[in-house]
Write a protein that binds this DNA or RNA. Structure first.
Lengths: 213, 213
DNA sequence: CTTTTGAAGTTAGTGTCTCTAACATATGTT
DNA sequence: AACATATGTTAGAGACACTAACTTCAAAAG
């Protein structure tokens, strides 16, 4: 009775001394745990249990708990980025629809993975000290800037585009947090999310845009 | 040599068995620690050391660590609220200046107390289950709604005012988080904060407002 | 004025956690 | 075949959250 249960990614008693894929399985176990219990209640020990290794094993792959959590955060940022890029393709270049789509994906990600989203932002302030995280975040923001510029028919991003991209980002970021924090009751925000996104996109980039197409 | 050092709020070796003011001193010690180390690296033990009591003492006043942190978060929300109300009085009723002032205070609070600000929002999602926190947050948001309504000469808040208040809140909230997360480099946000606030206030409430005064 | 009660401290301890040190096992290189 | 390295293990140190049982002291009750 060697390999009856083929449950992928988690636990499965192994017959070999070495695990083979521990690093990524730890990240996955951590991701799940962060969603289940919240980023603050996560423990490395439990991730070890789920990955089926001893509690000392992670430290062959990660310096400490925070490095493991950063890996999860980084993977989250990349997931969010990919989702945004994927959604872009459904809309015509240079249209408000693209802006709205990016915002929609941003918030959808926060709602579907609130634990990881909190990890990506809310938790510790020292994310700024780690280049991989900063660069991944930057590259996503660059996409927003370029989309804004495209709305005005530009291929080069000008300061006013950056300004507007930042307004959009701030708004969508805040909306994401308030949503997962449960502050968004019907009483406070009567409209549908989609309508709000369109409204904001119009207020920020729609005013002076060329809407010929 | 009984009471030479009159250092208020922290530590001072006491001669009586009972402390007298432990609850509020624990909250204060926690607040300081949360700022110093971040909300995730805070420990009750260290707060005890600073307050000069045993590690078991807090549990006569708080059910657990989270209840202590919630008390700090609540105090923060009340501080933030008071600062906003105080700043309001410097501006004429029914003007954009009032809206801008509230946003300015919101962000100023986040920047000056990022640890507590994170505690108030980013950390755990179960804040919504605690009435005191929800009510304090609600009452602050009500002020924003009323200020928006006043901008249109209304005393009663209408749905469109709530909508706009929510847009403002989302934006300022997101801007606060991005700022304390260090995402706000000059490259991304070339303008001054004050200019951005005015810009947003105009975009959200300034468009169709009565600007007779 | 004494007694009692209860709030708010204490010490001592349990279980969990993070992380390290020393050792074990497998894999690939020479 | 011998060795070096990566990646596991066990054992344990030190910090922490929290509990149980005991102590102190002030204030209410008799």
């Amino acid at each position: 009775m060697n390999r009856i249960m083929e449950n992928p990614a988690i636990a499965e008693k192994r017959d070999s001394y070495h695990h083979g894929d521990l690093r990524s399985q730890l990240i996955e176990a951590t991701r799940v745990l962060v969603e289940e219990k919240g980023p603050d209640r996560f423990s490395v020990s439990e991730a070890c249990r789920r990955a089926g290794v001893s509690t000392a094993a992670p430290y062959k792959h990660f310096k400490d708990k925070e490095e493991l959590l950063r890996a999860v955060a980084l993977a989250g940022m990349e997931r969010q980025r990919e989702q945004m890029l994927a959604e872009l393709s459904f809309n015509e270049p240079g249209t408000l629809g693209r802006i709205v789509a990016m915002g929609r994906v941003y918030i959808r990600f926060a709602v579907s993975e609130p634990g990881v989203f909190r990890l990506m932002f809310g938790l510790s302030e020292d994310h700024a000290e780690h280049d991989e995280l900063v660069e991944t975040g930057d590259s996503t923001f660059c996409v927003v800037q370029q989309e804004v510029a495209k709305c005005y028919g530009r291929d080069v991003v000008e300061p006013q585009d950056m300004h507007k991209a930042f307004l959009l980002w701030s708004f969508v970021h805040g909306l994401s947090f308030l949503t997962i924090d449960g502050k968004l009751t019907d009483r406070k925000m009567p409209s549908e999310l989609e309508d709000v996104l369109v409204d904001v996109a119009r207020r920020v980039v729609g005013q002076d845009m060329d809407v010929s197409t």
